[in-house]
Design a binder for these strands. Structure first.
Length: 829
RNA sequence: GCCGAAGUGGCGGAACAGGUAGACGCGACAGUCUCAAAAACUGUUGAGGAGCAAUCCUCGUGUCGGUUCGAUUCCGACCUUCGGCACCA
């Protein structure tokens, strides 16, 4: 190890030039790059653009090695693209509003703004030490008024486009965070942030009409996204195609005449033997017979008390209550009993289902439990009229279905739907699982919703000219279950922009996912003060070419951002419909084969390694330990291996090479071949984001060069060319080391704007190869041959091999397989 | 339960349009240097076996089958791990 104590370093200072001392060169180059604005970019129509974006970090205080894992390889790729001649936008910023900051600030008794800004200072210092090629002049911080002014502006655009509305609805309430949550932030009935069990509340809240884009959000046309994320988004939208069907009510004197249900299986309508309403369904109180009232009300109370988790448990036995009323299946005139059961959800479809026990597992279980009739109307293959042992849910042929008998399920469903439409008893229908996005939060640390309530004028949007609606600094922000802004008199009291009468401000703040739904647009013109973004700059830079980050945002950030862009497109504010052309999810980094966590005490702090070993070493190690998408295990001795390697690289370049001028054709031809092979391998690995094998190729190249150096095998000029290539290939991965050695070799500043080396395919080809000789598929001999060997020659060599003869034992060869230039397989009986 | 990804030396991982399994690195062992240690450098390192030796043989990519001249790679079943979905009518 080159690790040295400070004292030792000072004593050895006279030999420093010969040693790799990353701390020194890294600081030096970082300062120079910053002073020169090396990575600051402007629009340039002469170059192709590349927008390389890494998900911006949340301002939690300290960047851990997981952040590095997200940022180092993506920076390597951005640098690679820059050397390939792209005009690369590689920005960074901070996602700064939100609950964790607020909670942490409360715990520590300081203001969230102070806490957040202090964290940003530290994180900025950490990020700079990584040596990433960020354009710091474009830094954005979402909690500053100059940013959230435009978040509010965008809220108002959505409001004016009819995409933001206020409604009273049962919403998810996190009792720990003391705020409502969007559906996307509830995971298995628990708060996505803190894990508390979520309860229901009826509150008037602001929603975004994301459901209007349900169909488009299911499609991922012309974008290169991980299959996993596309599937999650599609599942989240949850599109179901089927029919909405009306069942007749004939309760004498009642005003209600029908129950509407949604089904994906209109072909099973003749199998309906009961109806089920959600306990919260508005018809329940109207239809329940007096003698059933007590029992029904008790059931409703019980299901209300149940938590989401209990209600969502799938292995629970189905329960329900008959309410005493009947509905009529208009297709066959049958009267069926109406039940309520909590397996039917008010929030989906019409909140009512038709019970077809023969062809639905849930209905089957329910019918068995309450002894309801099970009537087969879709015949399984080879069915001969016997009772079904379990629900038959796959397609079949319609039976016991009157005029529809004999139709296969698919066609039958269509036929039934058309028939219903004809009669006015129903229609084709599509239902989505996706709900509108609830964006109100009853917490302090967020952008205020720019809305004013006036007794005379009602809901009045804040005029653009009055933006931003500033978050008051002096508010008491401890959570109470209501927005802290409610108690801030100076904030809440205002005048109506329409009638100038006294009015009150909306006191809720916005979900922080709103801030991150458009930040990638802001980077194009981060200081624009007349609009959230300058249209021409967005036109130049967007969409993002490669967006990298964790997979945990599949149905939150990535989903919301897509919605935003589609809405902005429809308002004419942007000209594209997808924000991110390609998405790549890196894996998770662990330590000691366990997830890193403060409680386990296994959190790896990059600062320690950067100060001891250098940022270049950390960058390379993160890339080398495993494929990027897989994540990996942080290992202290592994990182030392990288240190050793970079030391050897340093030595190889700095040491005097004296190869004379002798003409050594063979060795130089081999060197040329290996250089070209390495360029080819490194380039294609980088394109595929296969950083681990890219580094391995560079290590092999270094090992090879070490042998060449030791043998003084090639002339000085050839050696110089080899070293030049090595440095260029290293530049994206080890920017400081490469820049330093580049300068020492006398090349012009900066290596990071040099052209990426090209290669000649012809020169990568080997002259000799190893021919594999097999007998019955087992390796028996290897012979070095020319790559241009003919089939006959290869077979002759195979048959001539003494080792092969030992195996043949005089047996007859029945077949010979030849793979050109690679292998001969002799098959014997 | 359903869908998806993955199981390779002591460890992280290479190699898969089917064709030399274990690149590269870590660790370990041995050596050089040193009074010694660290660092650095050099060599060995899948398992088992034969030989003084150079060498050679057998087995080996989660398990069991199949296809094939040949399977880590393709097919089928199963086991394990990790993700995602899960009363959505």
């Amino acid at each position: 190890m080159f690790l040295v104590s400070e004292g030792f370093y000072l004593a050895q200072v006279n030999i420093m030039l010969a040693k790799y001392y990353p701390q020194e060169i890294e600081k030096k180059w970082q300062q120079k790059w910053a002073a020169d604005g090396l990575y600051e970019v402007t629009e340039d129509s002469t170059k192709p653009k590349w927008y390389a974006l890494t998900m911006f970090p949340y301002t939690s205080g300290n960047l851990h090695i997981g952040h590095w894992y997200a940022m180092a390889p993506s920076d390597v790729y951005a640098r690679f693209k820059r050397m390939q001649g792209y005009n690369v936008l590689h920005p960074i910023g901070f996602d700064a509003f939100g609950l964790p900051a607020e909670n942490a600030a409360i715990e520590r008794g300081i203001h969230p703004a102070a806490w957040t800004m202090r964290n940003i200072d530290n994180m900025r210092r950490q990020l700079k030490s990584l040596g990433a090629s960020y354009d710091w002049s474009r830094e954005i911080i979402t909690c500053l008024p100059e940013y959230y002014r435009w978040t509010q502006w965008l809220f108002l655009r959505l409001y004016k486009a009819g995409l933001a509305y206020r409604a009273k609805a049962p919403v998810n309430w996190c009792p720990h965070c003391q705020t409502v949550l969007a559906n996307e932030q509830v995971v298995d009935g628990r708060c996505e942030r803190c894990g508390a069990v979520v309860t229901r509340r009826d509150l008037a809240q602001w929603f975004f009409r994301i459901t209007r884009y349900a169909d488009e959000l299911r499609q991922h046309n012309d974008i290169d996204w991980p299959e996993r994320i596309k599937i999650m988004q599609r599942n989240w939208v949850g599109k179901s195609v089927g029919a909405e069907i009306s069942f007749a009510l004939d309760n004498a004197g009642g005003e209600e005449t029908e129950i509407r249900v949604f089904t994906t299986r209109p072909d099973t309508i003749f199998g309906v033997s009961f109806m089920v309403l959600a306990p919260e369904h508005p018809l329940v109180t109207k239809l329940t017979l007096p003698e059933k009232r007590t029992e029904v009300e008790a059931y409703i109370t019980r299901s209300r008390q149940q938590s989401e988790i209990e209600r969502l448990a799938t292995d629970r036995e189905k329960t329900g209550v008959f309410i005493g009323a009947y509905a009529t299946n208009r297709l066959n005139g049958e009267k069926v009993p109406i039940w309520i059961a909590d397996y039917v959800l008010m929030s989906y479809g019409t909140g009512a289902v038709m019970g077809v026990p023969a062809h639905d597992e849930r209905d089957f279980a329910f019918a068995k439990r309450y002894h309801l009739p099970i009537k087969t109307v879709i015949a399984p293959p080879k069915w001969s009229g016997e009772e079904l042992a379990e629900a038959y849910t796959t397609p079949g042929v319609m039976v016991n279905s009157g005029r529809f008998n004999g139709l296969p399920s698919q066609d039958g469903g269509e036929a039934v739907s058309y028939f219903l439409e004809e009669k006015g008893w129903g229609k084709h229908a599509v239902t989505y699982r996706l709900r509108d996005w609830l964006i109100s939060r009853q917490r302090y640390w967020g952008a205020p919703i720019p809305i004013i309530y006036c007794d005379r004028c009602g809901i009045v949007p804040v005029p653009d000219t009055d933006l931003p609606v500033l978050l008051p600094e002096n508010a008491e922000f401890k959570p109470t279950g209501e927005s802290p802004l409610k108690y801030c008199e100076s904030f809440i009291n205002t005048t109506c922009p329409v009638c100038s009468g006294p009015a009150r401000r909306e006191t809720d703040t916005m979900d922080t996912f709103m801030c991150s739904s458009w930040y990638f647009l802001r980077y194009a013109s981060p200081h624009c003060d007349t609009a959230p973004f300058a249209a021409d700059k967005v036109k130049y830079w967007l969409p993002v070419d490669l967006y990298t980050g964790g997979a945990e945002h599949a149905v939150m950030h990535l989903f919301y951002a897509r919605f935003f862009i589609k809405a902005l497109r429809d308002m004419g504010l942007v000209s594209f419909g997808e924000p991110f052309r390609r998405i790549f999810n890196q894996g998770t980094i662990i330590c000691g084969h366990q997830k890193m966590s403060k409680s386990r005490g296994n959190v790896v702090n990059p600062d320690d390694y950067v100060s001891r070993l250098g940022a270049d070493v950390v960058r390379v190690y993160l890339m080398f330990m495993a494929p990027w998408e897989q994540g990996g295990n942080w290992d202290d001795s592994g990182v030392c291996g990288i240190s050793r390697w970079l030391n050897r690289v340093w030595g190889l370049v700095v040491e005097k090479y004296d190869g004379g001028s002798a003409n050594r054709v063979e060795a130089e031809r081999e060197l040329t071949r290996i250089i070209h092979q390495t360029i080819s391998k490194v380039t294609s690995d980088l394109e595929k984001l296969r950083f681990n094998t890219m580094i391995a190729a560079l290590m092999e190249f270094t090992n090879y060069l070490a042998r060449v150096s030791k043998a003084r095998a090639v002339a000085d000029s050839a050696w110089k060319e080899a070293i030049k290539t090595l440095l260029l290939l290293l530049a994206p991965s080890t920017p400081h080391l490469a820049e330093e050695l580049w300068q020492r070799q006398g090349y012009p500043y900066s290596i990071h704007y040099q052209n990426w080396p090209g290669w000649d395919e012809k020169l990568t080809r080997n002259e000799a190869t190893t021919l594999i000789i097999q007998v019955n598929g087992k390796l028996r001999d290897r012979i070095t041959v020319s790559v241009s060997i003919t089939e006959d020659e290869a077979k002759r060599l195979a048959l001539g091999s003494q080792r092969v003869k030992n195996y043949l034992n005089g047996r007859e060869i029945t077949k010979m397989i030849y793979v050109p230039g690679k292998l001969v397989n002799l098959v014997v009986g």
